Computed example of a mutant assay.
Amino acid sequence: MNDKVDGRGSWILAYRQHVLHIVTHAIINIVEKPWERVYIDGQPHEHGFKLGSEKHTTEVIVKKSGVIQLTSGVEGLALLKTTKSGFEGYIRDQNTALPETRERMLATEVTASWRYAYESLSSVPQKQQFFTDRYLDVKKDLVDTFYGPPKEGVYSPSVQNTLYLMAKSVLNRFPDISSIKLKMPNIHFLPVNLKNKDNQTIVKFADDVYLPTDEPHGSIQASLSRFWSKM
């Protein structure tokens, strides 16, 4: 399916020729669940595969006039940083109870969608596998911005800040992307510290044992677009 869409939208053209003579526009949604080759003892298995975690999504809105809206994205991209993450510098008032911290785990499951600037079938790139390659490049850029350099990483003062930098990086690097939406809910891993009212240090771990918890949690999301975007 991707090969046909990548080949200058030939699949979309075929759909338009067969269907759009009786409707004004069509919305096409495609979700790719990637299968990944299994490695046994460090060697790629000849015929073994496992289902990958994230999904590659695509939506195309095509009108009888030839005008299109093309959106791609990723769902279920799970990311984790074990250090160089905090939550600080946020607005505080008399009701704020959450203390600031410069050391915590940062875990999230990224849902991202980005809209391309192409507005007609004739403007869609003709290069084979263009959108598959672009999807992989955008996903890599999101991941690289989240983690930072492999040795020193990059400090994150908040999920909100990291989300903004990820979206900004995509717009800066790919001029054919006009807007991007990101959703990054917190997946909390809280440091374990067993204590009671009589002894505050019964078992005090040095930030090396964490308890996963679903509550409380927040869902952070934002949209960034170029000033000329019709998002």
Score class of each variant (00 low, 15 high):
130 F>A: 08
132 T>F: 15
132 T>E: 14
133 D>Y: 13
133 D>N: 15
133 D>G: 11
133 D>P: 03
134 R>E: 14
134 R>F: 07
134 R>V: 11
134 R>S: 15
135 Y>A: 12
135 Y>F: 15
136 L>C: 12
136 L>E: 13
137 D>Q: 15
138 V>G: 04
138 V>A: 05
138 V>T: 02
139 K>Q: 15
139 K>Y: 02
141 D>R: 12
141 D>V: 11
142 L>D: 00
142 L>I: 10
142 L>E: 01
143 V>I: 13
144 D>R: 14
144 D>H: 14
144 D>F: 09
145 T>K: 06
145 T>G: 03
146 F>L: 10
146 F>M: 09
146 F>H: 07
147 Y>G: 11
147 Y>W: 11
147 Y>Q: 15
148 G>A: 04
149 P>A: 15
149 P>C: 09
149 P>V: 08
150 P>Y: 07
150 P>R: 12
151 K>W: 07
154 V>H: 11
155 Y>V: 06
157 P>G: 04
158 S>H: 06
159 V>L: 07
159 V>I: 13
159 V>S: 01
159 V>G: 00
160 Q>N: 09
160 Q>S: 09
160 Q>T: 04
161 N>I: 13
162 T>L: 14
164 Y>P: 04
165 L>R: 11
165 L>E: 08
165 L>M: 08
166 M>H: 02
166 M>E: 07
166 M>W: 01
167 A>D: 05
167 A>F: 04
167 A>G: 11
168 K>W: 03
169 S>T: 13
171 L>V: 06
171 L>K: 06
173 R>M: 04
173 R>G: 02
173 R>Y: 00
174 F>P: 05
174 F>G: 05
175 P>V: 12
176 D>N: 14
176 D>P: 04
177 I>P: 04
178 S>D: 14
178 S>Y: 02
178 S>G: 11
178 S>P: 03
178 S>T: 12
179 S>K: 05
179 S>T: 06
179 S>R: 05
180 I>W: 00
180 I>Q: 03
180 I>M: 01
180 I>K: 02
180 I>L: 03
181 K>I: 08
182 L>M: 08
182 L>R: 01
184 M>P: 01
184 M>F: 00
185 P>N: 01
185 P>W: 02
185 P>R: 00
185 P>M: 02
187 I>Y: 01
187 I>M: 02
188 H>C: 05
189 F>S: 05
190 L>W: 11
190 L>C: 09
191 P>R: 04
191 P>S: 09
191 P>N: 07
192 V>E: 04
193 N>Y: 04
193 N>F: 07
195 K>G: 05
195 K>E: 13
196 N>I: 12
196 N>L: 09
196 N>F: 11
197 K>D: 14
197 K>T: 14
197 K>N: 13
198 D>G: 15
199 N>T: 09
200 Q>V: 10
201 T>N: 13
202 I>C: 03
202 I>A: 05
203 V>P: 01
204 K>G: 08
205 F>E: 07
205 F>S: 10
205 F>M: 10
206 A>Y: 10
207 D>S: 15
207 D>C: 06
207 D>P: 00
208 D>R: 12
209 V>E: 03
210 Y>D: 00
210 Y>W: 15
210 Y>L: 04
210 Y>T: 04
211 L>M: 09
211 L>A: 07
211 L>N: 07
212 P>H: 01
212 P>A: 03
